[in-house]
C-alpha cells in the first residue's frame, strides 16, 4: 500500500464506519425527530466517505471503485480508528462519541482545506460545515444529559469514560508517512489534539461532567487491527454486496 493511498483510506474509513454505526439508529432513536437527525449526520459522513473512497481507488491506480473498497475489503485492510467502530446502541455513548469524533473532524477538515491533494481539500471544504453541525448536535445532547437528571448525568459520564479511552488513537501520528506531511497532503494528527480538546473541554465543564481519568486503549485501527465488534459491523455492511456480486437496483 502506498502511503498516500493509506492516508486517504484512513480518512474515508473513519467516515464510512461512523456512518454505518449512525445508521443503526434509524428506527431506534428515542424520537422520530432524533431519528432523522442521526440519519442526516450519518449521510453526511457517508458522503465524505464515498468521495474519499473513490479518490483512494484513483490514487491506488488498481482500478478499484468506491464499492470495491467499501464492500470487498477484509477487516485487516480497513484503516479506521476504534472510536468509531465499536457498538453504539446506547444514546449517551452515541453522543459522547460524536462529540469527540466531530471535534477531531472539525479540526482535521479545517486543516485539510489547504491540502496539496485537491480532492482531499475539496472534501474538507465541504465537510467543515457538515461537521460543525454534527458537533453542535452532540454538544446539545451532552449538555442536556450531563446536566440533566441524576440518572442521565451518571449514564452520560459512564459513556464519556468509555469513549475517552479511544480518544488518543485519533491523534496518533506514528503510522503516518513523514513524506505526506512534507508534501502537504496530510496534517499531523498530533497537532489536532489541543485544538480538538479546546472544543471538547468547555462542553464537559458546562455539562457538569468531569474529564475522565482512564488509561488509553491499545488502538491499532490505522494498522488494520480491529475490535471484535468491527467484524460484525463489516459482516452486516458487506453481506449483500458479497452475496450478490454486482447487484444493482
Amino acid at each position: 500500500m502506498s502511503a498516500h493511498f493509506e492516508y486517504v483510506l484512513a480518512l474515508a474509513d473513519d467516515a464510512l464506519v461512523s456512518a454505518q454505526r449512525m445508521g443503526w439508529w434509524i428506527s431506534r432513536a428515542p424520537q422520530l425527530e432524533e431519528d432523522v437527525a442521526l440519519a442526516n449526520i450519518g449521510l453526511d459522513q457517508l458522503g465524505q466517505a464515498r468521495t474519499l473512497l473513490a479518490h483512494a481507488g484513483a490514487v491506488e491506480g488498481a482500478g478499484r471503485s468506491e464499492d470495491d473498497l467499501a464492500y470487498l475489503r477484509d477487516e485487516r485492510d480497513f484503516r479506521n480508528v476504534h472510536l468509531v467502530e465499536r457498538d453504539q446502541s446506547d444514546f449517551g455513548v452515541a453522543m459522547a462519541r460524536l462529540l469527540l469524533f466531530s471535534s477531531y473532524q472539525a479540526e482535521l477538515y479545517a486543516a485539510l482545506r489547504t491540502s496539496s491533494d485537491l480532492t482531499v481539500a475539496g472534501v474538507a471544504g465541504k465537510a467543515v460545515k457538515e461537521v460543525a453541525y454534527h458537533l453542535d448536535h452532540a454538544r446539545q445532547w451532552v449538555l442536556r444529559l450531563g446536566d440533566g437528571t441524576e440518572e442521565s448525568h451518571r449514564r452520560m459520564q459512564a459513556a464519556l469514560d468509555a469513549e475517552w479511552r479511544h480518544l488518543d488513537e485519533l491523534f496518533d501520528s506514528s503510522w503516518l508517512a513523514v513524506e505526506l506531511l512534507d508534501e502537504g497532503v496530510a496534517v499531523d494528527p498530533a497537532s489536532l489534539r489541543e485544538p480538538a480538546l479546546s472544543r471538547i473541554l468547555p462542553v464537559l465543564r458546562q455539562a457538569t461532567l468531569h474529564v475522565p481519568e482512564v488509561l488509553p486503549a491499545v488502538g491499532g485501527g490505522r494498522r488494520g487491527l480491529h475490535t471484535e465488534q468491527f467484524g460484525y459491523l463489516l459482516a452486516e455492511m458487506q453481506h449483500l454486496a458479497r452475496s450478490h456480486p454486482g447487484a444493482t437496483w
Binding site: E33, E34, V36, A37, N40, D136, H137, Q140, R144
Partner: peptide, 10 residues
C-alpha cells in the same frame, strides 16, 4: 434550541 435543530433536520 432543539426544536430549532429538529426543524432544520426535518
Amino acid at each position: 434550541e432543539l426544536a430549532l435543530r429538529n426543524a432544520r433536520d426535518l
